[in-house]
Simulated scan of single mutants.
Amino acid sequence: MNRRFLIILIFFSNFAFSQTNNFRKYIETSDIKRFWTAFDAVKNSNDINKTKIFENIYVEKASKGLQDFIKSRDFTSEKWIKSFEEYPKFWNSIRPKTENIQKDFNKVEKIFKKFRRIYPEFNPPKIYFTIGNLKGGGTVINGNLIIGSELASSDKFVDFSELPKNYQDRMKINSGIMFLTAHELVHTQQNLNNSKNSNLLGSCLKEGSADFIAELILDKKVEAPYIDFGLKNQCKIWEEFKKEMYGHDFQNWLSNTATIKDRPADLGYFVGYIVTKNYYKNSLNKKQAIKEILTLDFADENATENFLKKSKYACE
């Protein structure tokens, strides 16, 4: 392709993408309004079958993204009703944050634009801002980004006193939807074919590289307990990780919020993050490095091993 033509094409692509109306077509928020309508109906009803009320208003009218979210997290109306009864202070305090989540959409648009600048092949996904039931702030399903707004928008100002400690710890450091959105947006661009078959190294690179690219996009250090702890204990963590990195037992490193006791959860994110950061730092062509990070096949053990070697990461 002629270089001049390519430059013109990229310019007009970015110009079209920058238009507000264009950007808003990627955002779906209808589930939030329906959720609070259903919440009020349940709260104000004397009907013993509150689950049916919630089902009719929220679940049966769910957007495509919420439908996928419900299936992936096994949400049920009964579980939502139980959550309302167990955590009334949380649900009442999180409401205004979810209802006003659109105030951050100009920042989300900037994330899209910055992603396009550092990675011209960026293919923007649809983002569904939904409300789940405290089972994930964000996920990618069928190429779409689905945000659980009740977790994504929670922070230290929410009344989380009724919630388990691991939720409280998370909310104390959450500064809004930006980092989570950026992190999950990276997942929509990654090569996730067969990623469920990845060994520990591949799985940690998938998550840690999403943290690193999000940091580049936001131009802001990742704020997470696993990052702070990891930076202070690199050698100890690396020695432990090396013993397990080619296996498929993730319990010491990923999705272990409920079981880990003596250190922050998800230290595998830190390992993937620091290896990816080293890979980027040691690459002469930064844009090419970003492409290599995003197209890495996490299920290919030879590819992830080669990525680790090229990163030259070593704790000394």
Rank of each mutant, 00 (worst) to 15 (best):
M1A: 13
N2C: 03
N2G: 10
R3T: 12
I8M: 13
I10P: 04
F12G: 07
S13K: 12
N14C: 12
F15Y: 12
Q19A: 09
Q19Y: 11
N21A: 14
I27V: 13
D31H: 00
R34D: 08
F35I: 10
F35P: 11
F35H: 07
W36H: 14
A38I: 03
K43V: 01
N44P: 03
D47S: 13
K50I: 05
E55C: 05
I57R: 05
I57Q: 02
V59F: 15
V59A: 09
K61C: 02
A62P: 02
S72Y: 08
S72R: 10
D74Y: 03
F75H: 11
S77F: 01
I81E: 05
Y87F: 15
K89A: 13
K89C: 06
N92E: 15
S93E: 07
I94K: 10
R95C: 03
T98N: 15
K103H: 01
D104I: 00
F105D: 06
K107G: 05
F112T: 06
I118L: 03
Y119M: 06
E121V: 03
N123S: 15
P124M: 01
T130H: 08
T130Y: 03
I131L: 05
K135A: 14
K135Y: 11
K135N: 14
G136H: 02
V140E: 04
G143S: 09
I147K: 11
E150C: 00
L151N: 11
L151I: 15
A152V: 11
A152P: 13
S154K: 02
S154I: 04
K156W: 09
V158C: 01
L163I: 03
K165V: 14
K172E: 05
I173V: 12
S175E: 15
G176M: 00
F179M: 05
H183R: 04
H183K: 03
L185A: 06
V186T: 05
H187M: 07
Q190G: 08
K196N: 14
N197V: 08
N197P: 05
L201F: 04
S203Q: 15
C204Y: 00
G208S: 07
G208R: 14
S209C: 03
A214T: 01
A214W: 00
L216A: 00
V222L: 10
E223M: 13
E223C: 13
G230W: 02
L231A: 08
L231Y: 03
K236S: 14
E239A: 02
E240S: 14
F241E: 11
N252P: 09
N252A: 11
L254E: 08
D262G: 06
R263E: 12
P264R: 02
P264K: 01
L267Y: 00
L267C: 05
L267R: 07
Y269P: 07
Y269I: 04
V271K: 11
Y273R: 07
Y273S: 03
K277A: 07
N282K: 03
K286Q: 06
K287R: 13
I293Q: 02
L294I: 00
D297F: 00
D297E: 14
L308Q: 01
K312Y: 03
